[in-house]
Nucleic acid binder design. Structure first.
Length: 552
RNA sequence: UGGGGUGUCGCCAAGCGGCAAGGCACUGGGUUUUGAUCCCAGCAUUCGCAGGUUCGAAUCCUGCCACCCCAGCCA
């Protein structure tokens, strides 16, 4: 099941570096900002970073990039850690926080100022934008650019002391306002934010920007390969500039790869948060969400997610992976590992007229068609039972391999039956089917040589139980919900959730533990809900249907 | 119209000068007490386009074209 890591440009690159001595060890890090829950795109990055560390015998840190307290919270910090552990990864040592390096960053800011490489600027946001120039025109130097180191030092300490209002001043690197790379036009290093921080409380009225934090965090932790997505490529010169101008303890290098995009899915924390805030879904862990916790609740396994990440590979081209690949990964895992059981979602009563009313047989059925070691379970069989209404027609053509009047069908793991009559209500709806069971057909074909047309699932009315089943489908009906002109909210699939209040389940399912996954035969894979399921009120979520190649 | 990237089958992706891996999807056929799984077969004379170098190019060179990213005191 576990596959050997496929080669990708980073693995090859690092292998070369180690061979040539450019690199002597591999230390990576996964650096989420705690401003939302992890999603499938993060899972891919996690697999990459932890995977690289593992294949090269190095280590991978978990570091919260918490430099913008306004959008962050402890809830996210806790959820992110749980998700990573659930995915099966262990970070090296303690969890790290950018915020625990704030004092060091400040001291380095002082170094920059003393070197004449940074200055305090009084331009407000709008003015700064005007001075920055455009993509095709050089920017202009800020009128505050030539303040003396002494003055800058004083101003910076006043900023740190909370003497200025938000937006009144910033600290900027003094690089080149005419650089064709916008990131080098005197980027902002510190801004004033008088908000308390989830880790440092009210200790700081100023917070470093991503650019002034990331490379230094990596350097402090001895990260050797700082892997990020393509949009940070233009920041690399700045990342390097800072490391070159600061007395940092090591020299990490940044590498970029193309992050994951999935069809029929959005992977934007901002938009995912909007779905949660506007109650479009039940929460970050709603089974329809592409979040790690949502997929977990949906019934996806960590193994399938990791396998999927291995399948799609890693490259520098930005594409859209077909969600069918993710679906294949989970089906592949569950087909192999999920015990089988029977559930009737849309019950139609069948009465076996030749089966004694007081008779109740206990049939035995394997839990898996090809893995004997998964054991067996007991299926009560009785005169009255339920099949799915979809599996019966009064008459049908040869292609319909289910129950038809005058024809036979195999009840999965039980007898072959033959239908005689459909009982209808006043409105003409079929409410019951009268049928007969064929003797001696347990594990055998009928002695008269007339074989059943097909096999259907069933549950005994006498021994079966009831359960609520939530049927999930894709959250979005459009292949690219937020691509181009699309507004993702316009493409919500109205049928992404439908609830079956009273499905019939075979009795063995009543003992299901939360998060236990089954294949309901001929239907798909279902998981006992992680939070709401109980023996008294069983609730199953549909993970994914079986592949269905039956057309017409 | 500045800079940085990317272009190999419908999708993802190997390939790194020697004659186009693999997976997903799809299409046939076989097995089957799940119309599932499994099995077998098919699926790029061609690598964005045009030139050039070479005995030989997806791989090297030149020039085009397309798409993505950068003008947050977000990350």
């Amino acid at each position: 099941m576990e596959t050997k890591p496929a080669n990708n440009f980073l693995r090859l690159k690092i292998a070369e570096e180690i061979k040539s001595g450019v690199a002597t060890e591999v230390v990576t890090r996964f650096p989420p900002e705690p401003n939302g829950y992890l999603h499938i795109g993060h899972a891919s990055s996690i697999c990459l970073n932890f995977g690289l560390a593992e294949t090269f015998g190095g280590r991978c840190n978990l570091r919260f990039d918490d430099t913008n307290p306004e959008k962050e919270s402890q809830e996210y910090i806790d959820a992110i850690q749980e998700d990573i552990k659930w995915l099966g990864f262990d970070w090296a040592g303690e969890v790290r926080f950018a915020s625990s390096y704030f004092q060091q960053f400040y001291e380095w800011a002082v170094v920059l100022v003393e070197q004449g490489d940074a200055y305090v600027c009084d331009l407000n946001a709008e003015q700064a934008r005007e001075y920055r120039g455009t993509l095709t025109e050089a920017g202009e130097n800020s009128p505050f650019r030539d303040r003396s180191p002494e003055e800058n030092l004083k101003l910076l300490s006043l900023m740190r002391a909370g003497e200025f209002a938000e937006g009144e001043k910033v600290l900027r690197a003094k690089i080149d306002m005419a650089s064709p790379n916008m990131n080098l036009r005197d980027p902002i290093l510190y801004r004033i934010r008088k908000v308390s921080h989830h880790q440092t409380g009210d200790e700081w009225p100023i917070y470093p920007t991503y650019d002034f934090a990331h490379g230094q965090e990596d350097a402090i932790e001895g990260v050797t390969h700082s892997i990020c997505t393509l949009e940070f490529e233009g920041h690399r010169p700045l990342y390097n500039w800072l490391l070159e101008h600061l007395p940092v303890p090591s020299t990490p290098r940044q590498f970029e790869f193309g992050g994951l995009n999935l069809s029929y899915t959005i992977t934007s924390k901002r938009k995912l948060k909007q779905l949660v805030d506007e109650d479009v879904v039940g929460g970050w862990d709603d089974p329809r969400m592409p979040t790690v916790s949502g997929m977990r609740r949906r019934g996806y396994t960590a193994r399938a997610i990791r396998r999927f990440c291995e399948m799609i590979g890693v490259s520098r081209s930005e594409g859209v992976v077909d969600v069918a690949m993710l679906e294949h990964a989970i089906r592949d895992d569950l087909n192999e590992n999920a015990p089988r059981a029977m559930c009737v979602l849309n019950p139609l009563k069948v009465v076996l007229t030749n089966y004694a009313e007081d008779q109740l047989e206990q049939l035995n059925a394997p839990c898996h068609p090809s893995r004997e070691e998964l054991g067996t379970r007991t299926l009560p069989f009785s005169r009255e039972l339920y099949i799915d209404a979809e599996d019966f027609r009064e008459e049908a053509n040869k292609k319909f391999k289910r129950l038809v009047i005058g024809k036979r069908v195999r009840l999965r793991n039980a007898y072959v039956i033959e239908a005689d009559e459909a009982i209808k209500d006043a409105a003409g709806n079929i409410v019951e089917v009268r049928a007969r069971f064929i003797e001696n057909t347990l594990g055998e074909n009928p002695e008269d040589g007339i074989k059943p047309k097909g096999v259907i699932q069933w549950v005994s009315a006498a021994g079966g139980k009831r359960a609520k089943v939530k049927l999930y489908d894709r959250l979005f009906s459009d292949e690219g919900p937020d691509r181009g002109e699309n507004n993702f909210l316009d493409h919500i699939n109205a049928d992404s959730l439908s609830v079956v209040e009273d499905a019939w389940i075979e009795p063995s399912l009543i003992k299901a533990a939360p998060e236990q996954i089954f294949q309901f035969e001929r239907e798909g894979y279902f998981v006992a809900d992680r939070v709401e399921h109980s023996e008294a009120a069983p609730i199953f979520n549909k993970t994914i249907g079986l592949r269905d190649t039956w057309n017409s």
